[in-house]
Computed example of a mutant assay.
Amino acid sequence: MTETTLTALLGWSALINYAVLLLWFALFSFNRDFIYALHTRWFNLEQAGFDTIHYAAMAGYKLLVLVFNLVPWLVLTLLV
């Protein structure tokens, strides 16, 4: 795999992952009650804990995308 191909792959991967993150945020923001009702069928969760779990998961996902996609893409873009 060439550097140019890897750079393109990481760039597209970062865009797709951030699109997933935005979709997750939008669905959670506009359909929170439905998602909460769906999850409480399986797990005994309070609303505050549910919000905390989703917020922490979104933050972790965002951090992983940043570390494994965006930073390597930026480094390769600056080097190539």
Rank of each mutant, 00 (worst) to 15 (best):
W12F: 12
L22K: 06
L10Y: 04
A26M: 08
M1W: 09
L63T: 11
A48E: 07
L38E: 09
V71Y: 03
L64K: 05
A59D: 02
T4R: 15
V67T: 12
L78D: 04
L22P: 00
T40W: 03
L23R: 12
I16E: 02
N17S: 14
F34R: 15
E46Q: 09
I16M: 05
G60H: 06
V75P: 02
L74N: 08
L22Y: 08
L64N: 07
H39G: 04
T40F: 04
F50H: 03
V20W: 07
A19R: 00
A14G: 07
F28R: 05
N69Y: 08
F43H: 07
R32G: 05
A37K: 12
A26D: 11
Y36S: 02
V71I: 15
L21W: 01
D51A: 07
W42E: 10
N17G: 09
Y61N: 03
F30R: 11
T77A: 14
M1L: 10
L78E: 06
K62P: 00
D33S: 11
L76I: 02
R41F: 04
A57K: 04
L15N: 02
L9C: 09
V65C: 06
L74S: 09
P72C: 02
A26R: 09
A56N: 14
A37F: 06
F25E: 14
A59C: 03
L38D: 10
K62R: 13
T77C: 06
T2G: 15
V20R: 06
